[in-house]
Design a protein around this nucleic acid. Structure first.
Lengths: 249, 249
DNA sequence: AAGTGGTCTAGACCACTCC
DNA sequence: GAGTGGTCTAGACCACTTA
């Protein structure tokens, strides 16, 4: 067989060999050519194809394993890992998971949806270039029947065209995106804001009460994927993280 | 010379050799035996003392460098690194640095100080066992003459006895602690709260306005060092972080 | 039993940088 | 020039796991 995946590994000659190997495989994983579950060729096969010693190949694979992109087991070999659903303080990307982790029943409802060029106020809120078509969604998530968080989101149709055909009636948009799109970078911002009249009503709190606002934008290789504003009623929510002086523990 | 530090490196025979070396040196750094700036013996010296090959020693040192505990340079060698003052979203531990990074003048004032067993309401706020003696401090930090953040802190005198003799008039307590104590673990919690009457007055905002509350507790090997509550006037502050699906980028 | 990764060695050459 | 770390090789043995 010539299309077992080995041929896809190509070095670029830039920098140390182990790093060329690491980047070559990393790129195959991140751009979707090797989806989760794909077998990575064994070390000896990479050795032969790339003309490197086993230690050099090994070093690249160990580093990728430490970064979480692949998992390795003796005898059964190396496979591309599934991206972790959550990995740090603010990184619970699935609100259903977040709610169920608290031991509550989860439900959600789409409050509004509008496809196409965003209205000026939406474009301003998410710092969009006005021309790009998006889906603009407002969703309310419930925990044990009570309002949990209010979500306002834009999905960039140029990056995720398949979203146009999805109703988001059974799977909330954040979870649908996790399953149907790739992302390579995210940015979070956290702030405290007062609930506006409509927000207060939807969250079942008083006007002006403090809320935690989580803003998240994600990209896949320079292309914007989605941007979301999550408004949590204050007091009821805390974001917690632990680490040491040199990094996470 | 026999006390050049080499003798302090002791393996425990548990697990791979490279990991024994890594842990041995890590422990010397974390427990203060090798403070920042200390020279780490060169690879060939560790090879000879430990009876390991250079690759094995190298592997341990590379990993420590990646973890940020040491810095390595050709010719000049390996030295113990200074703990980074900031390394992620919520980890700006020095408020003067935080303010100066925004291009503003910094100043601060101690609003109150009480040494000894904490009052019941303070013990409750910080979840303290009532018996342990602490310093209880309230501080206001100013940015360009305007209130920036309100700080309420307890310092555990059993862990940091030297704090009793410090007036905190020239160096704010957080910065003094960074210089005069060690910590190995921290916990952060973030929430949105409404400003109380006294807090609003001290921050120069209206009562009930949303504020971002950052609560941080730090320990050094199981011993509590300090606990602090930082109240930032909402809207004016955002905490931002960037990362990829597999971790920080 | 055999295939896979995990570790380790002994040696080599190179790159950087301080003296 | 010399000391340091950075990379790489060729080979070895071991540990684990599946067939």
């Amino acid at each position: 067989m010539s299309d077992n995946g080995l041929d896809a590994v190509k070095l670029d000659g830039a920098g140390p060999v182990y790093d060329q190997i690491r980047r070559a495989i990393r790129d195959l994983v991140l751009n979707g050519a090797w989806p989760p579950g794909t077998s990575v060729p064994p070390e000896h096969a990479l050795m032969e194809r790339l003309g490197a010693s086993r230690m050099t190949v090994h070093r690249a694979l160990v580093q990728l394993a430490r970064e979480g992109l692949i998992t390795r087991r003796r005898r059964s070999g190396t496979v591309v890992a599934s991206p972790p659903a959550s990995h740090a303080m603010l990184d619970i990307l699935s609100i259903p998971d977040e709610v169920r982790r608290l031991g509550q029943d989860y439900s959600f409802e789409i409050l509004s949806r509008r496809d196409g060029k965003p209205a000026p106020e939406v474009a301003a809120l998410f710092e969009l270039k006005r021309a790009a078509p998006v889906i603009h969604l407002v969703t309310r998530h419930l925990s044990g029947g009570q309002p949990h968080v209010l979500e306002e989101r834009v999905i960039h149709l140029a990056t995720v065209p398949g979203a146009a055909d999805e109703s988001f009636e059974t799977v909330p948009p954040g979870d649908w995106l996790l399953q149907h799109s790739l992302w390579s970078q995210a940015e979070h911002a956290l702030s405290a804001v007062a609930a506006g009249p409509r927000e207060a009503e939807l969250l079942g709190i008083g006007r002006g009460e403090p809320c935690l606002l989580v803003e998240r934008r994600t990209w896949n290789q320079e292309s914007p994927v989605t941007a979301v504003r999550l408004l949590y009623p204050g007091g009821r929510h805390r974001f917690v993280g632990r680490f040491g002086p040199y990094g996470r523990v």
